[in-house]
Nucleic acid binder design. Sequence first.
DNA 1: ACATCACATTTGTTGGACAATTGACAAGCT
DNA 2: AGCTTGTCAATTGTCCAACAAATGTGATGT
Lengths: 235, 235
Amino acid sequence: MALKTGSARNLHTQVVEDIGQSIVGGLFQPGDPLPGEAQLAGQMAVSRTVLREALKVLAAKGLIETRQKTGMRVRDPRYWNHLDADILGWRCASMPTDDFVDKLVEMREIVEPAAVMAAARRRDPAQLEAIGEALEAMEDAQNLDDWAAADLRFHEAVLMATNNELLSSLFSVIETALATFFVMSARTAKNFKYSLPHHREVYEAIRRRRPNEAAAAMHTMIADSRANVRKARRR
Amino acid sequence: MALKTGSARNLHTQVVEDIGQSIVGGLFQPGDPLPGEAQLAGQMAVSRTVLREALKVLAAKGLIETRQKTGMRVRDPRYWNHLDADILGWRCASMPTDDFVDKLVEMREIVEPAAVMAAARRRDPAQLEAIGEALEAMEDAQNLDDWAAADLRFHEAVLMATNNELLSSLFSVIETALATFFVMSARTAKNFKYSLPHHREVYEAIRRRRPNEAAAAMHTMIADSRANVRKARRR
DNA sequence: ACATCACATTTGTTGGACAATTGACAAGCT
DNA sequence: AGCTTGTCAATTGTCCAACAAATGTGATGT
């Protein structure tokens, strides 16, 4: 457990990452409980103060609960904030199982068509331009990394154009899904721009304020993406 | 700012509530920044340690960012975790503006019809029974409080029956929306059971595994609810 | 066998100290 | 004067040691 995961300026951030990943990754089973604060702090070579700051964060995410004398227990996954960006990231880092990928796709299929409908109705010129810029960046992309970044920007810009921050907060889900797909299809992507026409359709529909067309285009785009992931998964 | 909001076992929980509500409520403007830790701790009569535990939680929710020397700043609302149950609660507590209610309704209209479709396809017998029990409790309810609690259980059970924890995590949104509606229509509700037939339709569609019927029933139900809220808001 | 109570363990809370970072300002050089 | 450089100070980051509060456990007494 003592691996230093990513780099982080703050110590407690590292501790959060470390313990969080251990819990989400299943290293700690739900219900049965972590060592005491003193022991944990010793294991990770940090002060109890820092450890406790991390524990509070994990508790806020719903991963653990603490009671005096009893100690800390991993909560049932039912109570986790599954939409939290960190938790999503940890799940993908350690357990990109097939059914989890399916759940991500299902979320996309629900959220994104509805989002482009809202965007087509309510977007303002600046938001449209943000989407357009992302689209241009996708066209100009010379390698997979550039294209992935631009793709993320595109979908983020669409979510922002809904003018509903509850919807745009779901970008953490879409972001995780796309990132996972990119990893899975990194090899098989000779023509990584294959979905560019779909993106253009979505953009055009939003520009022309055609909610239904936008939703349809987005729907086929996600279906395509899912089929592609299935294919990549099989090899 | 020194009002003691709700009751809480832990001190830092109170601090989180207090500062979080102040930020979400607009008492602290985004961009320009909170007093230092020492001063804040003094104002709230807690130790710096406790205050810092609270600040880490708020930072994890995306409300603030801290840097050495500069201090703490309220982040742009774009970065807030708007789907966090606490943040939703704080927004409703201090600012149930009309457009926020509209956004909540929009989320329901997107999520819940899709959710009942998934539930109608994938629910298992136990999950169906959980929905049925909630429905019975709604029938038997003698007062508004009982009915509200049963209504919440109904919608939660539906989300759980999707077998997609990403979807069921959105219950925090639905919960907040319903709670707000109950408050808004508390007076005007002579016949608070008016939506019972709709709920029954949804239940039946899920039982008979009819995704499209379930989605349609849920859709009209939410539309009804929205119309009712509009009416209540006007007086 | 049962109730009661003291105890021990674990988290909760406090205060203080020092380290690390970094913006601000002053000094010095060109 | 304008720019660079270095020092300073303010703020958060980290650590430590002690005590308070809660609470399961077991001893104790009847």
